[in-house]
């Protein structure tokens, strides 16, 4: 989401109303990202709260107003991962892969909810890049900056994440999979 840079600049310089307004615009996306990691409302709300407090505490460290959305997303993802680790809810990759591969999808399943569920069960690194690329619409370059990792790693993780998701969603084509992410 592109924000009014003037408002972001005001927030960086300490204008609380501006920051509150910007967080209000981002709240739904932040919550949905948190929910994808936590997979229950209570924990997702907790992550959202931690994200808000962390954003308030560290907004002055944001150097480029244009990066507000990516910066906030990174906070949310980090908070999600931290909270998951605290709650020992991280699931190892092999378990996930086995679970997805073994899962039989009933025909009448609500596919959208199933995608959410499957995405939530993906290993952290795949889930993160898929959320950033296909939910937040960040470019590969932006994801590289958010995750501080090379372009090749981002592309590989997107590719593998989609492949794993497809396996978990047997018979379902993902329109995002067709998107050029090079």
């Amino acid at each position: 989401m592109q924000h009014d840079e003037q408002r972001v600049t005001a927030a960086i310089k300490g204008n609380k109303q501006a920051l509150q307004y910007l967080l209000g615009l981002e709240k739904e996306k932040l919550y949905r990202i948190a929910y994808t990691y936590m997979r229950n409302e209570e924990d997702a709300v907790e992550v959202f709260q931690q994200t808000v407090l962390s954003a308030i505490e560290s907004i002055h460290t944001l150097r480029e107003p244009a990066y507000f959305s990516t910066w906030l997303t990174r906070i949310c993802i980090n908070q999600s991962i931290t909270t998951l680790r605290k709650k020992n809810k991280l699931v190892v990759m092999d378990d996930i892969a086995e679970h997805l591969l073994a899962k039989n999808q009933p025909e009448d399943l609500d596919y959208k909810m199933d995608v959410v569920d499957a995405l939530g069960k993906l290993p952290e690194k795949y889930k993160t890049v898929l959320l950033l690329r296909f939910y937040q619409d960040f470019s590969i370059k932006q994801i590289m900056e958010i995750l501080d990792c090379p372009e090749g790693t981002v592309k590989t993780n997107i590719h593998r994440g989609l492949a794993l998701l497809k396996k978990g969603l047997k018979g379902v084509y993902l329109d995002e999979g067709k998107r050029d992410f090079n």
């Binding site: 509150q20 919550y31 709260q49 596919y111 959208k112 959410v116 995405l119 296909f134 939910y135 084509y173």
Partner: peptide, 30 residues
């Protein structure tokens, strides 16, 4: 199984937002 196209984005949009709770958090934080 009939092939369907499912978007990650539209799927995530199905997650219900507890708007009142989020607004309360924002309010309390500021």
């Amino acid at each position: 199984m009939k092939e369907k196209e499912i978007s990650i984005k539209s799927s995530l949009e199905t997650i219900q937002i507890p708007t009142e709770k989020l607004d309360r958090i924002l309010y309390d934080a500021f």
